[in-house]
Computed example of a mutant assay.
Amino acid sequence: MLNLQLGIRHAVGRQSAPTSLDLKSSAFDPKEKVWTRFPPEGSKHTPPHQSCDFRWKDYCPLVFRTLRKLFDVDPADYMISICGDDALLELSSPGKSGSFFYLTNDDKYMIKTMKKAEVKVLLRMLPAYYKHVRNYDNTLITKFFGLHCVKITGGIQKKVRFVIMGNLFCSRYSIHRRFDLKGSSLGRMTDKPLDQIDETTTLKDLDLNFIFRLAGSWFQEFCRQVDRDCELLEQERIMDYSLLVGVHFKDRSLIYSSSFFPSYRQRQC
Rank of each mutant, 00 (worst) to 15 (best):
H45G: 01
R177D: 02
K182R: 15
D77R: 08
L181H: 07
N105W: 03
K143F: 06
I80M: 09
I8N: 01
R37A: 04
S174E: 13
M189A: 08
E234D: 15
I164E: 01
S93R: 01
L140V: 10
Y102T: 06
K192A: 14
P48L: 07
A17P: 02
R9N: 12
I80F: 04
R65M: 09
L126E: 05
G216M: 09
G155Y: 06
K131E: 15
R9A: 10
S185M: 10
F222P: 01
T202F: 15
K116Y: 00
M189E: 11
R228V: 09
L168G: 08
E221T: 12
Y173S: 11
P39F: 07
V247Q: 03
L70E: 08
I80C: 05
V160K: 10
S97D: 09
L122I: 14
L23R: 06
P30E: 05
P30D: 06
F28C: 02
H45K: 10
Q235C: 00
S259L: 10
H132Y: 08
K151V: 13
K115T: 08
L208K: 07
V247F: 01
T153Q: 14
F210E: 08
S92R: 14
F64D: 02
G155C: 04
F145A: 11
A17K: 11
K159G: 00
P94F: 12
S20A: 08
C170K: 15
R228H: 11
R124N: 12
Y102K: 06
R178L: 07
I111T: 09
H49T: 04
G216E: 12
L122M: 06
T201C: 06
A27C: 08
P127W: 10
S259M: 14
L126C: 07
C230E: 13
A87P: 02
S257E: 10
T113R: 00
K204C: 10
S174T: 12
V12P: 01
F219T: 06
N105D: 11
S258W: 09
M165Q: 00
C60Y: 04
H49D: 03
K24P: 00
